[in-house]
């Protein structure tokens, strides 16, 4: 079935297609199929094996996971031109996340087998596919860094709250090295966490003094990581 004009236009604007010459774009587009999902339907369920690479051409879907205690965690939202389910290109393992349409969603997809055949025949399609995989790895690494930094910031916030001095005569002092040992990280990371807390207006640092400006906000940061 031919793609709708809208999906064709969105696909041509994806980074994937922009990297290809005209001939490779036509080869790729010929293999694409289109389908749509109504609001709140599962496009992929965790544990399911779907051998297709998808591109969203309209609407918004969310990638989420359900934690063992039943809480939903949204990993990311995917919109026009974003792709998903790329991991099944390299292996046939079941999906480790759910993909759910949060509004009506239109997607284009290419069966893995067709894409793998195109990759064998056409080196620019192979390069564009590898780039798509490496972009995802880069994104995930930055997400891991961000999450671990956020958790350190939460732990540093907890230490600051625990060490508030109320008695000027018997002031307790704490060094960055002490905080690093308590937070289980390196001193440089504590230094970055303090700087980010200051930049975000939670604290003010003036040489030997840390003034806690937003105690409620600091407590919220602690709650986020506990």
């Amino acid at each position: 079935m031919a793609l709708s004009d809208h999906s064709r236009k969105v696909m041509l604007e994806t980074q994937f297609c922009r990297e290809l010459d005209d001939h490779s774009v036509s080869l790729f587009m010929e293999e694409l199929q289109e389908t749509s999902y109504s609001r709140q339907t599962m496009i992929i369920s965790e544990g399911e094996t779907i051998q297709k690479l998808f591109f969203v051409t309209d609407g918004i879907a969310k990638i989420n996971k359900i934690s063992p205690d039943g809480k939903e965690q949204t990993i990311t939202l995917i919109r026009n031109g974003d792709y998903f389910n790329e991991t099944t290109l390299v292996d046939s393992f079941p999906s480790i996340y759910n993909v759910e349409a949060i509004v009506p969603v239109r997607v284009c997809y290419i069966p893995n087998e067709s894409l793998l055949n195109l990759m064998k025949m056409n080196s620019s399609i192979m390069k564009a596919t590898l780039r798509l995989l490496s972009n995802r790895i880069r994104y995930l690494i930055s997400l891991v860094e961000d999450l671990s930094f956020r958790s350190v910031t939460g732990r540093v916030a907890k230490i600051l709250l625990a060490y508030i001095n109320t008695d000027a005569l018997h002031a307790k002092n704490i060094t960055q090295r002490d905080m690093a040992a308590m937070a289980g990280t390196a001193r440089e990371v504590v230094s970055r966490a303090l700087k980010s807390l200051e930049d975000e207006g939670y604290i003010e640092i003036n040489h030997g003094k840390i003034k806690l400006i937003d105690i409620k906000g600091l407590q919220e940061l602690v709650d986020l990581v506990e």
């Binding site: 600051l160 060490y163 508030i164 001095n165 109320t166 002031a171 307790k172 002092n173 704490i174 060094t175 960055q176 003010e204 640092i205 030997g208 003094k209 840390i210 003034k211 806690l212 400006i213 105690i215």
Partner: peptide, 10 residues
Amino acid sequence: CPYTIVAADI
């Protein structure tokens, strides 16, 4: 380089 930590109001 030790820090003293104080609440803003104090």
